[in-house]
Design a protein around this nucleic acid. Structure first.
Length: 183
DNA sequence: TCATTGATGGTCT
DNA sequence: GACCATCAATGAG
């Protein structure tokens, strides 16, 4: 199990998003190792992307998004659910990939077919916001399998407010995977 | 099976 | 005070 290097994240956000599919998300805490396979993601490509939090500019909340690639951007939505993103591209770009669904691999309890659900199942909360994904307790690893070729493209979920950006095909998932958040 | 709604709190105006 | 990158429960059909 090889941890992904910084340079993996320091590339175009759509490329990173697609290549994250099939990779393993690993979280070690309280002596337990939890592992899940990433099967659905969304790309938030920068400050010009009106669906992206970074389009509102640099604030206390979006600070991590504008930071260097390969860090976790974790925030609370609707007062109760955490969403996990990985920061991409160069510092100052304000781009990230949201993890929307994963498939249980090891020590996973509960459902994982949605951003809030997967965060709960993996024990991801805001305490991991800004965490370096090159650390040894929270990171993404290469699964060693061959690259995924059956990738579906759809519009992102829950961003109807974003005008033309709401319709862009920036949501990617593994076709026919049973753990997708919605078909 | 699908559409609607309540829960709940951080963030920004 | 409004909005929200969600989820589960509810009720109509």
């Amino acid at each position: 199990m090889r941890r992904l290097p910084r340079k993996f994240y320091d590339r175009g956000t759509v490329t990173v998003a697609r290549e994250l599919l099939g990779k393993l998300l690993v979280h070690r805490s309280a002596g337990e190792e939890r592992i899940a396979r990433i099967v659905e993601v969304e790309a938030y490509v920068g400050t010009h992307d009106l669906a992206s939090h970074s389009s509102k500019g640099l604030t206390a909340r979006t600070r991590v998004m504008f930071g260097p690639p390969g860090h976790a951007y974790v925030y609370l939505v609707y007062g109760m659910h955490h969403c996990m993103n990985v920061v991409t591209e160069r510092e100052g770009k304000g781009a990230a990939v949201l993890l929307r669904a994963v498939e249980p691999v090891k020590n996973i309890e509960g459902r994982t077919c949605g951003p809030g659900l997967l965060s709960r199942a993996l024990g991801i909360t805001r305490h991991l916001n800004g965490h370096d994904l090159l650390s040894s307790d929270f990171f993404v690893a290469d699964s060693g399998g061959r690259p995924e070729i059956r990738i579906a493209k759809r519009a992102r979920v829950g961003v109807d407010y974003a005008g033309v950006w709401a319709g862009k095909l920036l949501r990617f998932y593994l076709r026919d995977n049973p753990f997708i958040s919605r078909p």
